[in-house]
């Protein structure tokens, strides 16, 4: 126990300041949600994550956003296991044929307004996997998407910035 406490004190706070968002890394789509709704989301956002066919590197970076260095909770972001509690659906990967139905069901199970953020180049347009009998391409082909976060995979800072931009909490630096 003493060792654990000692290690905690040695470690201190490792959380880093979030670098400024870059415009090229995010594409916002469609009409922004109503001002009132957005205002509420700005305080905290609950995210349901679905891997719709990714190569799993996107998941590694998404797991990293919860680590002490990026600590997404400080921005009020947290992940939920149930779509019923979720404000935002975060999707990675091209949508595989075998995940299409599960993705739609998760989306349906969410309360409106359903913000959808597609993360990674695959989720944008299928990436290296393209469009085929097994890969249906980007998430936008299956459900309406509000924002795309680019990168293969996007870095943890890009992910946090992208989510903050999607809920209108930060403006993009031009």
């Amino acid at each position: 126990m003493l060792r654990i406490l000692h290690q905690i004190f040695r470690t201190g706070i490792v959380t880093e300041k979030l670098p400024p968002a870059e415009e090229a890394k995010v594409t916002l789509k469609g009409a922004a949600l109503e001002e009132e709704v957005m205002r509420r989301f700005r305080r905290s956002i609950t995210i349901r994550f679905v891997d719709a066919g990714s190569c799993n590197a996107c998941e590694l970076e998404l797991q990293a956003v919860t680590n002490p260095v990026y600590d997404c909770e400080r921005f009020g972001m947290h992940f939920t296991a149930s779509p019923r509690f979720a404000d935002m659906l975060l999707v990675t990967g091209p949508v595989s044929r075998n995940m299409e139905i599960a993705l739609k069901r998760t989306h349906n199970a969410m309360p409106t307004p359903k913000l959808v953020v597609a993360m990674g180049d695959c989720a944008h347009d299928g990436g290296m996997f393209g469009r085929s009998y097994a890969s249906l391409g980007g998430v936008g082909n299956i459900i309406p998407v509000d924002a795309y976060i680019h990168g293969c995979p996007p870095t943890p800072s890009d992910i946090i910035n992208g989510i903050l931009m999607a809920i209108g909490r930060i403006e993009v630096k031009k």
Binding site: G53, R97, M99, A102, S132, Y133, A134
Partner: peptide, 10 residues
Amino acid sequence: GYVHKGIEKR
């Protein structure tokens, strides 16, 4: 099979 994206064919 859920994340089968047709890699070998690709």
